[in-house]
Amino acid sequence: MEKVLIGYYIGNNVQLDISCKKLISFDAKKRAVRYYVLRETMLRLFLYLLQNANGKIITSEELLYNVWDLHGLKSSSQRLWQVMQALKFRLASLGVEHDFIMRIETFEMKGHILKPDMIRPYYFTVNKNS
């Protein structure tokens, strides 16, 4: 048996579906579903944060390298800021707390951190013998 990561729950009512590239919000009171389809770079940024910034600071340089440079894209601080702001807007409009992704600036570094108690990965279990 193998566990395959298929997404994350963010807070109480938001889900990231990796294969569909969707951020989905379930509102039981209104019986409504809202979602955003994420572009490739925004999805890569969000996944990198979810997998690496869970309780620790990820530097801007690390994000630029892993999200843009490794994929043959030109990175810049301005582009990181633009994509991060768009991601934060989408999350906030789906009901995620505004401080879920926090920008950290010190004399030594600039980076981002996530509130770890709001993130729950979810998996499929696959039988490799089938």
Rank of each mutant, 00 (worst) to 15 (best):
M1N: 08
E2K: 11
K3Q: 15
V4F: 03
V4E: 14
V4S: 09
L5D: 11
L5A: 10
I6K: 15
I6N: 11
G7Y: 11
Y8W: 15
Y9M: 06
I10R: 04
I10Y: 00
G11N: 09
G11R: 10
N12C: 03
N12V: 00
N12R: 11
N12Q: 14
N13I: 03
N13C: 04
V14T: 10
V14S: 03
V14E: 09
Q15P: 00
Q15G: 00
L16Q: 07
L16N: 06
D17W: 05
I18T: 06
S19W: 06
S19R: 07
C20T: 08
K21F: 06
S25F: 01
F26P: 00
D27C: 11
D27F: 01
A28Y: 11
A28V: 05
K29D: 15
K29G: 15
K29L: 14
K30F: 02
R31L: 13
A32F: 03
A32H: 12
A32M: 12
V33F: 03
R34L: 14
R34C: 03
Y35N: 10
Y36C: 04
Y36E: 13
Y36G: 02
V37N: 08
L38G: 08
L38T: 07
L38Y: 05
R39A: 11
R39C: 03
R39S: 12
E40P: 00
M42I: 06
L43M: 12
L43Q: 14
R44S: 12
F46T: 13
F46E: 05
L50H: 10
Q51F: 01
Q51T: 04
A53D: 10
A53W: 14
G55S: 02
G55F: 06
K56N: 13
K56Q: 15
K56W: 12
K56D: 13
I58Y: 14
I58Q: 09
I58M: 11
S60G: 11
S60P: 00
E61A: 12
E62H: 03
L63T: 04
L64Y: 11
Y65M: 07
N66M: 02
V67F: 02
V67G: 02
W68K: 02
D69L: 01
L70V: 02
H71W: 15
H71D: 07
G72F: 10
L73F: 07
K74F: 01
S75P: 01
R79Q: 14
L80Y: 15
L80H: 08
L80P: 01
W81P: 00
V83T: 04
V83M: 03
V83E: 15
M84I: 04
Q85R: 13
Q85Y: 13
A92R: 14
E97Q: 09
E97L: 04
E97W: 05
H98Q: 09
H98I: 05
H98T: 10
H98P: 02
H98R: 14
D99Q: 10
D99W: 04
F100E: 05
F100R: 01
F100Q: 05
M102W: 01
M102I: 10
E105H: 09
T106H: 07
T106C: 06
T106D: 07
F107M: 12
E108H: 12
E108L: 05
M109R: 12
M109A: 06
K110H: 07
K110N: 14
H112F: 15
I113P: 05
L114A: 02
L114G: 00
K115P: 00
K115I: 08
P116E: 14
R120V: 06
Y122I: 02
F124T: 08
F124V: 14
T125P: 00
V126N: 01
N127G: 00
N129V: 05
N129Y: 12
